[in-house]
Design a protein around this nucleic acid. Structure first.
Lengths: 147, 147
DNA sequence: TATACTATGGTCAGTAAAGGTCAAAGGGGA
DNA sequence: TCCCCTTTGACCTTTACTGACCATAGTATA
């Protein structure tokens, strides 16, 4: 497991303990993991995005902080919200992030199946220019049926 | 026995030892067999396909990997038979018919979702000439994940 | 009050480390 | 010989991590 994954786990653990919201110090966290501060930003922007179901609030300057907040909606709202968030096109990474966020609402098996339907592997017969558009359509149709 | 067969055997042996799922490093494997990395892709795409009953998961970048998963479970034969029946392309009507046969094995909701993923509606962004090929790929990937 | 210092966090481009794709060349069997 | 399966290598994409430089907020001081 890479550094980024360990940092992400640490944050996740904090969220678990504190009911969905933690406040971090970028500098201290970086020091704890022996990396440069910007590594923390990397972890946040790749693993704690709105698509993953998180909100980030920060403040600079003296006494600055980074707050990570996990968003929780009802299963139905979550699915509807996701359908609306998909838009006309979605890349592979964003689709999996969205789907992971729906895991509880959809169940393990359904999530895996929809992820498979949206995977680049399944869509390798579609040329890249149109691939994200097709993926978006498949994802939306699946989610609507799962509702 | 050719190089590809030896590599395939090596992977098979790993699957045997680890209960149906192995994680490989493309670079290391290639080095071990003294071939170019893309040779590994060749082996995977010719011998560990959905038709053979395998799922491939990969991650690029630092700490990347290739995971080979052998599908197992009880309704396996029925589903594998279907996967093989799909072939390189399948029209909308045939896909629905195939899915209806699997209704008991998959359950109502899953069947509906996979049908949605394979629908012309979901694939309206794919031009008819290629549509059946894309549908076949989606269907196979979904069925393997549904096992 | 205005200015300067200090303490934070943010951005972005660059580097390295994987894996992916595809077309062309090679080789063995019918 | 011809065809199909193998093998190779050049080029591409994605992910991880780092460091230099930037922006902002609080605090001390002239």
């Amino acid at each position: 497991m890479g550094l980024s994954d360990m940092i992400a786990q640490f944050i996740l653990a904090g969220l678990e303990q504190s009911d969905g919201a933690v406040e971090l110090s970028r500098g201290s966290l970086a020091e704890r993991f022996g990396c440069v501060p910007s590594q923390i930003n990397y972890v946040l922007t790749t693993r704690f995005t709105p698509e993953h179901g998180y909100i980030i609030e920060t403040k600079r300057g003296g006494g600055g902080y980074i707050r990570v907040i996990r968003v929780r909606l009802s299963p139905r709202d979550l699915i509807m919200h996701t359908v609306n968030a998909v838009g006309d096109g979605i890349d592979s990474a964003s689709a999996s992030a969205l789907l992971q966020n729906l895991r509880d609402a959809l169940g393990e098996r359904l999530t895996a199946v929809i992820a498979a339907a949206c995977s680049d592997r399944a869509l390798r017969g579609v040329e890249p220019p149109e691939r994200d558009g097709v993926r978006a359509e498949i994802l939306k149709q699946c989610l609507l049926r799962a509702l």
